[in-house]
Design a protein around this nucleic acid. Structure first.
Ligand code: MN
Ligand code: MN
Ligand code: ZN
Ligand code: ZN
Lengths: 163, 163
DNA sequence: GTCATCTTGCGAACTGTTCGCAATTCCGTC
DNA sequence: GACGGAATTGCGAACAGTTCGCAAGATGAC
C-alpha cells in the first residue's frame, strides 16, 4: 500500500503526448479535430487535483484563450476520459461529477473525511488483485471500479471531541 | 469471499423489530411518531432488491395504504438509513439514489455489468480488513465505504461477440 | 382540550446535465 | 483557394432528481 504523491504540474512535452493520444481517438472515431476540444484538454490536464465541470469552465474563461460553453465542455469530457487523459472520480460530494488527470499518473483510490472533506489518495495493489479475483469468480471481465473509503480524519476527531 | 444470498422477504416479526429500532431513533431525536413514516418503513423493508425513490413511491401508492408525496419519502429515507433499516447504495446508474434493506441482512458490495445492468452481491472479508488497515495507516476512523466493481458479464461478452 | 411542535402535501425552486437547432468550423476534393 | 458535406459549437430550453417554503394536519405533554 502506498500514498500517492500529489499530482504535479504536467510538462509541456506530456501535454503534447496527451494531445496525440486524443487525436488518435478522434481519428478512430471518425471525428474532426478542433481547437476548442484541444484547449479544453490542455487546460484540464494542467489543472491540479480534483475538479468539477464548473471549475474547468471557469478556468477556461479566465485563461482568456477560449470561452467555452458548459454544454461544450460536457460534450468534450467523455472523449477526454475515453482517450485516457482524464478520469471520472466520484468523491461522493453529492454535487456533480469530479474529474482529475489520469494521463501519466498512477491509478489510485480515495479516502475521504466526511467531516472536513480532506481527500487522501492511495493505491493498494493487494486490493486491486482481489478485485480481479472476485470478478473472475463471477465470470465478469473487470473494466473499472469505484472504491472510496469514508471516514473521519485525526484532526476532525480531536476538534469534534473539544466541541 | 462469498456470494450473498438474495434478499428474501422479511418476516413480520423482523418488521416489528425494525419499527422498534426506528422508534428508538425517533425518540432519541426528539421527533414524534407518525403513521406515514412507519408505513414508508414497512413498505421499503418488504421490497426486495435495490430500489429507487420513485419505485418506493409507486409501491406506496399501489399498496393502497397511503399515497405519500415524493417530498415526504425523501424526508423519511435518511431517517430510515440512520435507524439502520435501509442502506444507500450507489449502483452507478447515473440516475438517482438506490436503496436496499440493511436491517438483518449481511453487509455486501456490488459487481455490476455495465452492459446489461446485472448486479451481483458479494462480501469479501479480506478486503474489508484491508480497508480498515488503510484508514488506520492514514489516521482516519473508517465509517463506511463505497465499493463497486464494474465489468461485463459472461452472457454479455458472448452476445456482444456475435453482434 | 389546549398548545406548541412535528409532520405532511403541494408546488415552486434548484442544480447538474442533456438536447435541439442554427451558425460555424473543419477538411477532403475539385 | 473555393466548394460542400459532416462534425463542432454556442445558446437557451428542457430534463430529472432532489430540496425548500409554507400552510394545513397530526401528535403528545400538560
Ligand atoms: Mn485522485
Ligand atoms: Mn445490494
Ligand atoms: Zn477531516
Ligand atoms: Zn451483462
Amino acid at each position: 500500500m502506498h500514498k500517492i504523491k500529489p499530482a504535479q504540474t504536467i510538462s509541456s512535452a506530456a501535454i503534447g503526448r496527451a494531445l496525440d493520444q486524443l487525436r488518435t481517438v478522434v481519428k478512430q472515431r471518425g471525428l474532426k479535430s478542433s481547437a476548442v476540444r484541444e484547449t479544453v484538454a490542455e487546460v484540464a490536464l494542467r489543472r491540479p487535483g480534483h475538479f468539477s465541470v464548473d471549475d474547468l469552465v471557469s478556468d477556461l474563461r479566465s485563461s482568456g484563450v477560449i470561452d467555452a460553453h458548459p454544454a461544450t465542455v460536457y460534450r468534450v469530457l467523455p472523449l477526454l476520459v475515453e482517450a485516457g487523459l482524464l478520469q471520472l472520480t466520484l468523491i461522493s460530494t453529492g454535487d456533480g461529477a469530479r474529474y482529475e488527470r489520469a494521463f501519466e499518473r498512477e491509478h489510485h483510490d480515495h479516502l475521504v473525511c466526511t467531516s472536513c472533506g480532506k481527500v487522501v489518495e492511495f493505491c493498494f495493489e493487494a486490493i486491486e488483485l482481489l478485485q480481479r479475483d472476485i470478478c473472475e469468480r463471477f465470470g465478469f471481465e473487470l473494466t473499472g471500479h469505484i472504491h472510496e473509503l469514508l471516514g473521519v480524519c485525526k484532526e476532525c476527531r480531536t476538534t469534534d471531541a473539544v466541541t
